[in-house]
Amino acid sequence: MTLAEILLGLFPDGHAVAVRDGLVTGSGPFGDGRIHVVGVDGDAPLGIEGALTLSRAVLDAVRAGDVAPILVAVDSDSQRMSRRDELLGLNEYLAHLAKALLLADRSGHPTIGLIYGHSAAGAFIATALATRVLAALPGANPSVMDLPSVARVTKLPLEKLQDMATSTPVFAPGLDNMVATGAVHVVLDPGKPLPGQIGALIAGMQPGDVRDRLGEERGGRPVARAVAAAVADQARLG
């Protein structure tokens, strides 16, 4: 689905969501109130200015005090890779955006990620992965790094990696693997109305971070939850 199709599905009566330079901000009617929308469209890379535009929109929503849900819609490239972005401290800008979303969540705004295209690396962490519930649409393609690049870094043949990717979700790009890892909570049905599906995600939100439990149940991250739990046990015993 394209962003236009998503917005049409979410807001059949119209909305005030704008896309500028690949950055999505605005809001539309949702249930008895409104839903804020922020995001990245068109496979755009996320750099320092973009991160700051999105964090401004999120902080404005928090300051408004309406505790309306915030939808983070993502079809992005990775972080913008440039000397200038790093010179000016890209890590601070991306972390700031993630912190704004986490603050919104703590302040009572349900935060829902919606990945409908690509996303990778720092851009993925600062946006969709900083929400409480991350949903995907079929065809979405989240990744950390594409397989040819993994082949370059690990010095393993691409054919071997492609073979391993079919049985080992922990390293391979793609939506199914991110679902198995627990990073993506649910894949939505594009044939059903979106407002109802988003509304159900908001109604079903659980406290805490359930991603490692999902990863254990789905087999994509077999040991992370048990490791974290064992740390907590030993810490308590002292």
Partner: peptide
């Protein structure tokens, strides 16, 4: 990279 999805998700956690 050999555990990229787990690492990326752990960073978010």
């Amino acid at each position: 990279l050999q555990e990229a999805n787990a690492g990326e998700t752990a960073i978010a956690e």
